[in-house]
Simulated assay, not measured.
Amino acid sequence: MAEAISYEEQRRRQVEQNKQKLEELRLHHLSAAVREATTKPSPTKKRKTRASRDVAGDVPPRRSGRLASLPEQPKYRDEFHDFEKKIRRSYGKRRDLSNRVYATDEERAYAMDAAQELEEKIGSDHPIFIKPMLQSHVTGGFWLGLPTHFSRKYLPKRDETIVLVDEVDDEFDTLYLANKKGLSGGWRAFSIAHKLVDGDCLVFQLIRRTKFKVYIIRASSYHESDN
């Protein structure tokens, strides 16, 4: 019995000592502070939220005295968007394909035969080639690729202006791109001015180093011929 009482007394003393150590270390106060910190919002986060609201509002950004005396910088982003809209509008107008004309196989064959006959009549005093018109030549892109062998043999080795002379001697300046071997700027104006459509055939006669005489054979002439 005495041993049991001694054991209980020893355990009670050990508990008292542990409580005393906890009081000394103030661990319970520390744990309470941790719990309180986790339940309350951070003051730093509040300040950041208010700052972000101020930036998003109509309040102008603060500028230093040195920068405040300088003129406002242009809004390049707005200018770019305006420019992009203009390009889209003009590009959309240029690519209005609602009035496209699609040639039949008979119309294409007729125009090609007529162009070959004209080529024989013109003779071989000047280099000649025939170019049937496709949609990419007369609508949308307005790019005219020239025969590679002809370009390598007769045309300039660098970009130059090439003049197109129609059957009434009106002249149109076009930009010849030597690397791509085709006509770029100016070809669109020529195509529109002469109302070229899919299936037409053009006979190009090189009368000078950078000048073509151009003859147009209309695919629609098929319906005017005696077939």
Rank of each mutant, 00 (worst) to 15 (best):
E3Q: 09
E8P: 00
E9M: 05
R11Q: 07
V15T: 10
Q17F: 03
Q17I: 07
N18D: 05
K19T: 09
Q20K: 07
K21V: 15
K21T: 15
E24H: 15
E24G: 14
L25I: 06
L25P: 01
L25G: 00
L27S: 05
H28I: 13
L30C: 08
S31H: 06
S31I: 01
A32T: 12
A33E: 12
V34H: 07
R35Q: 11
T38P: 00
K40P: 03
K40S: 06
P41V: 08
P41H: 11
P41W: 04
S42H: 04
T44A: 14
S52A: 14
V55H: 08
D58N: 06
V59W: 11
R63Y: 13
S64I: 03
S64Y: 01
G65N: 12
L67E: 14
A68H: 15
E72F: 10
E72R: 05
Q73E: 10
K75Q: 07
K75G: 07
Y76G: 05
E79D: 08
E79Q: 08
F80L: 13
E84S: 13
K86Y: 13
K86D: 12
R88A: 05
R89K: 05
R95M: 09
N99S: 12
R100C: 11
E107D: 07
A109F: 06
A109W: 02
A114K: 10
A114Y: 04
A115H: 00
A115T: 02
Q116H: 09
E117K: 10
E117R: 09
L118E: 06
E119G: 14
K121G: 06
G123P: 04
G123L: 11
H126Y: 15
K131N: 10
M133I: 12
M133S: 11
Q135I: 10
T139K: 02
F142I: 02
F142C: 01
H149K: 09
F150V: 15
S151Q: 06
R152S: 14
K153V: 08
Y154F: 15
L155G: 02
L155I: 10
K157M: 10
K157S: 14
R158W: 12
E160N: 12
E160C: 10
T161F: 12
V163L: 06
V165I: 12
V165L: 06
E167N: 11
V168Y: 14
D170Y: 03
F172A: 00
D173P: 07
D173V: 03
L175M: 04
L175H: 08
Y176H: 02
L177P: 04
A178W: 07
N179F: 12
K181V: 06
W187Q: 00
A189D: 04
A189C: 04
F190I: 00
I192G: 00
I192S: 00
A193W: 01
A193Q: 04
H194A: 05
H194D: 02
V197A: 02
V197F: 00
D198E: 11
G199N: 01
G199C: 02
C201Y: 01
C201V: 05
L202H: 03
V203M: 04
L206M: 06
L206S: 00
I207R: 09
R209Y: 05
T210M: 04
K211P: 00
K213R: 13
K213A: 02
V214H: 05
A219M: 00
S220L: 11
E224F: 01
E224L: 09
S225R: 11
